[in-house]
Nucleic acid binder design. Structure first.
Length: 351
DNA sequence: GCCCATGATTACTG
DNA sequence: CAGTAATCATGGGC
């Protein structure tokens, strides 16, 4: 039994003895609640503190001995029955205070969220749920930010681990404390009447206290997941300019198909591969480009001319190479960029 | 720090 | 569901 328990036990024992002032542990008489005697109360508290501070193993042993003496006292059974009687009379108020706890809606919400995020619940499902959540958050664009996905999963796993460790700790502490209190009460029940109901009530109080701590844990875990998610979503929205090369390839395609700048799915895939971006990024790019070009053709004129010239040079090179090729050995016509024939005029305008 | 360019998102349409 | 138009939010030049 630890020091605290011994103190409590001693206090209980001494209190019960009804002989304050003996045995080195004196508790002040109950105080009036008028609040006028503030100085006196301070003095009392000071006394109590002093008594606690001056507790020694010796005084505790003395108290134990006194308690033992009391237990063996011939008047003890009579005193015990009187206490039982008093208890019986005051028991009504305790019974009246009985309450069945309805499930806390906030706790349920937190539980549901933790379950949905894969933090609570079975391990295997957790990872899958997290991955699914991540995929859903990315708008279904598969594979485009797998780095963030794994990062997200790793962080979520970390949160999950911390959550479970803490939860376990709380549970253990709760059990330990409950056992401790029950032992204490059992011990005390030898000198004062304690009904099983009271013990149950006490256990309930302890459990409620611990579950409120658990609720805090759940709340902060939820917050952590939320922050992680928002960061993840922010990262998704973060814009990175495409490489110069990629923009060039896209522009070349756009201006060489100015009459119909709608790449087919295959063309998009090819462009995506060439630019090291996703198909949806290619679609975004063309969507943006079309609308921006249409809105201000004048502004893009120079660019259009530039790419028209570029494509023309490419085509010329291709032709030259083809001519050279045909002159040497092969009858086939090689393709410079892999694109279809440009359908632009020399000034870059749509045909 | 401002301002324009630009990639991403969203609401809407056919 | 692809495409349009508007809008958001950031990058980057000045």
């Amino acid at each position: 039994m630890d020091e605290q328990a011994r103190i409590m036990q001693t206090l209980g024992g001494v209190n019960l003895s009804g002989h304050p002032g003996q045995g080195g542990m004196t508790l002040p008489p109950p105080h009036g609640h008028d609040g006028t005697d503030v100085d006196g109360r301070k003095q009392d508290i000071g006394d109590i503190l002093h008594q606690i501070m001056t507790i020694t193993d010796q005084s505790l042993d003395e108290a134990q001995a006194k308690k033992h003496g009391l237990n063996c006292h011939r008047m003890k059974p009579a005193l015990f029955s009187v206490l039982c009687e008093i208890k019986e009379k005051t028991g009504l108020s305790i019974r009246g205070a009985q309450e069945e706890e309805p499930p806390d809606p906030q706790l349920m919400r937190l539980d549901n969220m933790l379950l949905a995020e894969g933090v609570a619940g079975p391990e295997k499902g957790g990872g899958a749920a997290a991955a699914a959540a991540a995929a859903a958050a990315s708008g279904g664009a598969a594979g485009d930010n797998s780095i963030e996905h794994s990062d997200y999963r790793a962080k979520l796993t970390q949160i999950r681990q911390i959550y479970h460790t803490e939860l376990e700790k709380y549970e253990q502490a709760c059990n330990e404390f409950t056992t401790h209190v029950m032992n204490l009460l059992r011990e005390q029940s030898r000198t004062r009447p304690i009904s099983p109901k009271e013990i149950e009530r006490m256990v309930n109080i302890i459990h409620r206290k611990f579950s409120s701590i658990q609720m805090q844990l759940k709340q902060s875990t939820c917050e952590a997941v939320m922050i992680l998610r928002s960061r993840f979503l922010d990262a998704r929205r973060k814009r990175r300019n495409f490489s110069k090369q990629a923009t060039e390839i896209l522009n070349e395609y756009f201006y060489s198909h100015l009459s119909n700048p709608y790449p087919s799915e295959e063309a998009k895939e090819e462009l995506a591969k060439k630019c090291s971006i996703t198909v949806s990024q290619v679609s975004n790019w063309f969507g943006n480009k079309r609308i921006r070009y249409k809105k201000n053709i004048g502004k893009f004129q120079e660019e259009a001319n530039l790419y028209a010239a570029k494509t023309a040079v490419n085509a010329a090179h291709a032709v030259a190479a083809a001519v050279q090729n045909s002159q040497t050995n092969s009858p086939t016509t090689p393709n410079s960029g892999g694109y279809s024939a440009p359908c632009y005029q020399s000034d870059g305008r749509i045909q």
